[in-house]
Design a protein around this nucleic acid. Structure first.
Length: 583
RNA sequence: GCGGCGGUCGUCUAGCCUGGACUAGGACGCCGGCCCUCCAAGCCGGAGAUCCCGGGUUCAAAUCCCGGCCGCCGCACCA
């Protein structure tokens, strides 16, 4: 098989191993599925992708802050979030044939006993007591266990508290919302970002970097007031309102339409295709961000999840997908409208106050009627021995409610007695209401870093005359520039070239450029090595340099060279690398 | 997890069916040296593989058998 016939995926995996981008972890012990090590070049590319994301999603937005929270979380967090409930299947495995059963389903079918919520130990005990065998082969069952996609650990070295490794960052932001809301002086909207590692104990990880057991997520939980969303979005939407996205909505899917249509962010909002305009806003930012990684716009699409495909917390979800050669369309991000689901859950499970106070422009004046029991009249009507009981029952109800019943029916019914108006003191008053409390809603854009690395590599991968050229966007390249002496021999002019090249290299590094120096092998070989890892520019010190202080700068993508003064190298690079511009 | 296919220097591969001369061969890459005025040049030398791991059959296993691990494909799973 020649190199051009092997598929791009294999070639990228080869390149990645060979040049130190990434490779299977624990290789010397045979490897473990779902884990990858990142090498010297890989960590640089990865960091650049993260930095690019921070630029687009955090640093250039108002009211978005970044935090870091632990990977190890006490169990209560994922109880409150619903993960434990939705992520745990008690499983029975047959020792003889290896078949796997959902324990609760099997026991319900065979013994008609409901064991939902039982611990694995209790299930195991029941299986032993009832001598339950595998219905397929009659074999014995191994002890039951919970098939969790959450990794389990303990806090404390022995007899510790059960804990989980987080499978997403979201809970870290939700938990911290009350605190951060105060730190940021009670302002909505408020976006909380987090970048870092998460872990999911996938049943069967595959497909290289696409399905990992430990990986990095870049996520924002964006808290906002649903009633103010239109107004607040209109203040910032100019950044993205004309951004064109390819979108396939759930409605279109239900009509068996398979091809997405092009919408601007503005159209998604105006045509109410999104349940909150913030969803469209972040999708617009996300579209720009993924394009900046080198993916053409027509290779990016947003697919709305159908109701039954959505997670339990989501009112509307779009997946952002990128077309790859190897795997077809792959999900690189999800945009979920989580409403107030999560913070209401945490509010219910803790004593923290997640509600936000919203002041009205003008206080609202509410006219109220209040009815208070008149004990002496009630006593006359119900008799002295019943008075106490009736009064207690009336005091447990709100005065407003009593007034309402009284005005609607003409009496208040309690313990079989119908109490007329004269049994109550009725009071009319005006109340000024200055505002209200509410749970903010949340929109969550969430990106998988490793998937983006794969996508960026696939779009960057090209070959020229049988050699690999990684055409990464300059901002993702592991190095900005390589510096070479044309010759590195022992002749005096060669020694001089090495000296000048090294000084240029040192100066560039000192000025904050990521640069490499290389004098090993022929000049052509060094260009080829630089091309392979996507270094956009190569500076060569040659004989002419010794005469007039100029060097050549070679462009990775065209191999064309121009000659410039040593003193103007920095200016040239800043301009060509696009380092002065943001978005 | 189930089924199918696969795993030999860093990479690609020869050998496996038909066990023995395999001390596992080659190419590319890598390392050292020489030589070189710009795109993987040339010459000389070198390192690099307990043939994925474990067990079995055999006088003898890279080669045959069993189990495991890892990968690819399909199914299932994917809050």
């Amino acid at each position: 098989m020649t190199s051009s016939e092997r598929d791009k995926y294999d070639k990228i995996m080869d390149l990645s191993r060979r040049r130190g981008i990434f490779w299977t972890s624990f290789e010397i012990y045979g490897g473990v599925a779902g884990f990858y090590d990142f090498g010297p070049i890989g960590v640089l590319i990865k960091r650049n992708i993260v930095n690019q994301w921070l630029k687009y999603f955090v640093y250039s937005r108002e009211n978005i802050v970044e935090i870091e929270t632990p990977i190890i979380n006490p169990r209560v967090v994922f109880k409150a979030s619903g993960h434990e409930e939705h992520f745990t299947d008690p499983v029975l495995v047959c020792n003889k044939c290896g078949r796997v059963y959902r324990a609760d389903h099997l026991i319900k079918d065979l013994l008609n006993i409901e064991v939902e919520g039982w611990s694995p130990e209790e299930i195991t005990k029941l299986v032993q007591e009832k001598e339950l065998k595998c219905p397929e082969c009659g074999g014995d069952f191994a002890p039951a266990f919970n098939a969790l996609l959450l990794f389990t650990t303990q806090i404390g070295p022995y007899r510790g508290e059960t804990a989980y490794l987080k499978p997403e960052h979201a809970q870290g932001m939700f938990i911290n919302f009350p605190h951060l809301f105060k730190i940021l002086r009670n302002t909505l909207p408020l976006g909380i970002a987090q970048v870092g590692r998460v872990a999911r104990n996938e049943i069967s990880p595959r497909q290289g970097l696409l399905r990992l057991r430990e990986f990095n997520i870049m996520e924002i939980e964006f808290f906002f007031d649903p009633e103010e969303a239109d107004r607040e979005v209109s203040r910032v939407v100019s950044d993205v309102e004309d951004e064109k996205l390819w979108v396939l909505t759930a409605d279109m899917r239900l009509k068996n339409i398979e091809e997405p249509a092009e919408f601007t962010v503005r159209e998604l909002i105006d045509r109410k295709l999104v349940k909150t305009p913030w969803l469209a806003y972040w999708m617009g930012i996300g579209n720009k961000f993924v394009k900046s990684l080198g993916v053409p716009p027509d290779k990016i699409r947003f697919i709305e999840k159908l109701p039954h495909e959505r997670a339990h917390y989501s009112a509307q979800t779009f997946d952002q997908e990128v077309l790859t050669e190897k795997f077809g369309w792959i999900e690189v991000a999800g945009y979920a409208y989580r409403t107030s689901y999560d913070i209401e859950r945490h509010a219910a499970n803790s004593n923290a106050d997640f509600e936000v106070f919203k002041k009205f422009e003008e206080p609202i004046i509410v006219k109220k009627e209040l009815a208070y029991p008149n004990p002496s009249e009630i006593s006359k009507l119900v008799g002295s021995e019943k008075t106490r009981e009736v009064l207690q029952s009336l005091y447990s109800r709100k005065p407003e409610e009593l007034a309402r019943e009284l005005s609607e029916k003409g009496y208040v019914e309690v313990q079989g007695f119908k109490l007329p108006a004269n049994c109550f003191y009725v009071k009319r008053e005006e109340e000024k209401i200055h505002g209200k409390k509410f749970y903010p809603h949340v929109v969550e854009p969430s990106f998988g870093v490793e998937r983006l690395i794969y996508v960026a590599l696939e779009y960057a991968y090209t070959e020229r005359e049988g050699k690999i050229v990684l055409k990464l966007p300059p901002q993702l390249a592991p190095y900005h520039v390589a510096v070479f002496p044309l010759m590195a021999g022992n002749k005096p002019e060669h020694v001089k070239m090495v000296e000048i090249a090294k000084s240029i290299y040192k100066r560039l590094v000192a000025r904050g450029f990521r640069a490499v120096y290389d004098d090993d092998g022929s000049i052509g070989r060094r260009y080829a090595r630089a091309d392979e890892i996507g270094i956009p520019f190569a500076i060569t010190v040659d004989h002419q340099t010794l005469e007039d202080n100029t060097v050549t700068i070679r462009d990775r993508d065209t191999t064309e060279q121009i000659r410039i003064e040593i003193s103007s190298i920095e200016k040239y690079l800043v301009e060509k690398l696009g380092l002065e511009q943001f978005l």
